[in-house]
């Protein structure tokens, strides 16, 4: 019977029969992508911030940093670098298998496939975001840090109130990029049996032998999710940039508040 239908009819038939499965799969995909991108951003920010802690490299007596701080930072930075290189340098599909099966064989920890999914996508995103955050921080004009230091701010104060807000705005497009990549790349998690959108496609097309039709449906769903995401992110960006105009304030009012301006009037 399905062989007698034309293309559109087949798509409608599939949607009628498996529509809710596709939607559930899409929901799973979106959930993993959103949560993991969020956790990945937190990891990325932490790693990026640690990597940009300044270390006084002057040799000998003039060095202002305690010896212990330099040793600890050196070791931590080396570990972080390895983390970034390993997770950026290997495919996520392999990482998923490696962590899902590796954790139980090496450490005896039996991860649920959901835990494994969130873990893999989060630390993968974290590795990419770490470099974006580091780039975002070092691309903020060094004068901003000097301006903050010159009024007596320490590194933490300068970072939280001056540098990071600007770095965050700089890397917002990168966060959007990662979210979109994650929406698509969660498809590899079907190797650890996560029933995401791609898994549904594989099952449906396998059962009905309708590869092209199912792929069409899945393409449209993926594209809708990514288009919507990028639209929302653009909106967020323009909201962050704020108003192009500003209001001049009546100086007389300020003067009256301070009790200084009446004379000049």
């Amino acid at each position: 019977m399905i062989s007698e239908m034309n293309f559109l009819e087949r798509i409608l038939y599939i949607l009628q029969k498996y529509g809710t499965s596709y939607l559930k799969g899409a929901g799973t995909t979106l959930l993993i992508a959103l949560v993991s991108t969020f956790i990945g951003c937190i990891i990325g920010f932490l790693v990026g911030i640690i990597q940009t802690i300044p270390v006084d490299k002057t040799r000998g007596k003039g060095n202002r940093d305690p010896f212990l701080k330099r040793i600890v930072l050196g070791v931590v930075n080396a570990v972080l670098k390895i983390y970034i290189e390993v997770f950026r340098g290997t495919p996520m599909i392999v990482q998923a298998v490696f962590i899902y099966y590796g954790m139980s064989q090496l450490f005896g920890i039996q991860l649920g496939m959901w835990q494994a999914a969130f873990l893999v996508v989060s630390i993968n995103t974290g590795a990419y975001m770490a470099e974006s955050v580091r780039g975002g921080i070092i691309s903020v004009d060094p004068g901003q840090m000097e301006g903050a230091k010159a009024i007596g701010m320490n590194h933490v104060q300068a970072m939280t109130s001056v540098i990071l807000p600007q770095a965050f705005r700089n890397i917002l497009p990168q966060i959007g990029n990662n979210l979109i990549i994650n929406i698509k790349d969660t498809s590899v998690l079907s190797v650890i049996s996560i029933v995401d959108l791609f898994f549904v496609h594989k099952s449906v097309s396998g059962a009905l032998y309708t590869y092209f039709e199912s792929a069409t449906i899945v393409m449209v769903i993926y594209l809708s999710m990514t288009l919507l995401t990028s639209k929302l992110l653009r909106l967020w960006e323009s909201r962050m940039d704020g108003d192009e105009n500003y209001e001049l304030v009546d100086v007389m009012d300020i003067g009256r508040q301070l009790g200084t301006k009446d004379k000049r009037a």
């Binding site: 060095n63 202002r64 004009d141 004068g143 901003q144 000097e146 301006g147 903050a148 230091k149 010159a150 009024i151 007596g152 701010m153 320490n154 109130s161 001056v162 807000p165 600007q166 705005r169």
Partner: peptide
């Protein structure tokens, strides 16, 4: 070494050629 640099800078301010106002 051991000088509280931040407390010192609070008392000795600086104005820069490129202003360095906080853009955010």
């Amino acid at each position: 070494p051991g000088t509280n640099v931040c407390a010192y800078r609070e008392k000795v301010g600086m104005v820069f050629q490129n202003f360095n106002l906080f853009n955010n």
